[in-house]
Design a binder for these strands. Sequence first.
RNA 1: GCCGGGGUAGCUCAGUCCGGUAGAGCAACGCAUUCGUAAUGCGUAGGUCAGGGGUUCGAAUCCCCUCCCCGGCUCCA
Length: 644
Amino acid sequence: MAIHLTLPDGSVREYSDGTTGLEVAAAIGAGLARAAVAVTIDGEEFDAGLPISIDGAFSVITDDTDEGRVVLRHSTAHVMAQAVLDLFPGATFAIGPSIADGFYYDFDVDRPFTPEDLERIEARMHEIVDADQPFERDELSVEEALDLFSDQPFKTEIIKGVDETEGAAPDAVSVYRNNGFVDLCRGPHVPSTGRLGAFKLMRSSGAYWRGDENNPQLQRIYGTAWENQKELTAYLDRLEQAEQRDHRRLGAELDLYSFPPVLGSGLALWHPKGAVLRSVIEDYSRRTHAASGYSYVFSPHVAKADLWKTSGHLDYFADSLFPAMELDGGQSYILKPMNCPFHILIYKSRSRSYRELPLRFFELGTVYRYERSGVVHGLLRARGFTQDDAHIFVSAGGVAVELERLLDFVLMVLRDFGFEEFEADLSTRDPEHSIGDPDLWDIAETALASALEKAELPYEVAEGEAAFYGPKIDIHVRDAIGRRWQISTLQLDFAQPENFDLSFATADNVKERPVMIHRALLGSIERFVGVLVEHYAGAFPCWLAPVQATVIPVADRHHDYATEVAAALESAGLRVETDAADETVGEKLRRAITHKHPAILVVGDDDQRDGTVGLRMREDAAEHRGVPLADAVAELTAACAPPR
RNA sequence: GCCGGGGUAGCUCAGUCCGGUAGAGCAACGCAUUCGUAAUGCGUAGGUCAGGGGUUCGAAUCCCCUCCCCGGCUCCA
């Protein structure tokens, strides 16, 4: 008997029945066999060591592909579980998947892991790898599996779950054994533990069983694993690079903002340079909104509890509210977690006509949310933050057009700030945590989906992730090192107009209920600045840079001329510093460079005599000597012009 | 909120395990230096060791509580 395998290049090869994937790979090439971690037949993944007895499209999964790394990481997670069960008698283990860049495994142990434990576990893992134990697959009936894992409650629960949820499924479960260790697993795995090795345990933490905080907390160990030492080192370097971009570190280094502990958790202070950056962003925001048909409004930071009762926040957002302030006369006031009720009250201040719609109220509104103590994180997750928030009141028939318009606007804004890759999430209704008519929800979700399709934005549906009052689109950007950040949010709301009994007069003079769209493009200004700092690693495009140019006099006798140069730049609208410190030129230059100023102008004797400057741009370390001052002003003004 | 790890000078960190009255580099300040593209030299000052309580003859160090930070979990802009 022979089997016929179609290789990715289209050629068909014949092998004897029972040939393993690894043998096929070896027959194609020794290098391929060395890199093979698993194979696919007709798109389905199998162990490389599995004897093949069917015809089909065959390909080898190599260790340097995404799929290959998943196999590698998953196998490494097994080895880690084996090491933990060796070293911690009585420990039970839950799940251990491959994740981006690595893997984790959850354990129930007597006490949490210490950093020293991780070292011991890692050492034991290396012993297992050195022993080169083969991974052996075995198929068991559910009863056999339950028996085998009778002392492992989490595995037992998983086996039972498999039986329940996968109706079509197997009356059998697969397990993998290496040495005495056996784990429930779908596979595939690498042929043997010797195939692993470039890994590192990163950290441990608590994690709830099945991600539910009502369940017991397990101890999770995170690790990273790669196909070779070089890739592992490169990954660790990337982590270090990311750390250099940390907005909290750069915020201190560039003197942008701070989080003094006496202020309180989740609250930021904006220093002068950070305030410049923020103002530039806010000015841009006001400008573009005005040009896009929005009206600017203001609202206070607190309001009576009754207002939040009507809006539903008191019922559905209670966990995120700061405690109410009880005022004289028994009135209770609440610090605003959102701006919407205020904009609604402005809408309601008089009767509205269809002629006014869509009505767009825009505010840089500062809101306060009592975030749980473990989640605050610099500017990215704060307890007080300012949204570029707007509420659009539109007729039901106008929603589709308005959404399309809005998506264009969002993408324009994000592109202006230097982002180029976008992905959207469409969050749908959570029946447990929502208000309003489910039929309206369906209509709203459809409207959002079709707007996304028209805008050709790639999106995924996030079931049950919507806000309590309506479905939403969240837009994510990719930053300079490929990380994904959620920035914009765009939410449809049929419920609030109902709650507040909003209406407008139609052309036929009948009352109709408007639809509301909540939207924030930059999201939170705080968060957006944090993301920008990390995206640009502090080296902002000139229009955003708090300091756009530094003037450096070579010696004291050039101070007057330096002041003249700075004045010329300032009168052209540029943000300039003059570094007149009693330091060497090298030191002053270094200071400007480490502070990532876009332009440096050095002025000495020649410049003073000729009315020139030595101009050095951040992107081009070479200096241009003897540039006439007027030319330098023109060049910098052009380089620092805002996008619109 | 939960699980770990932390908090020592403005910043980065040593000292904590094995209690005996606090140390470095950078920054700051002063003096000298006046210099052309990534750190000039010398000197000075600076800390209720996060806060509170306890143990002890004696606490940065051991114990408890609170606050704040970091990494996860959960949650989220």
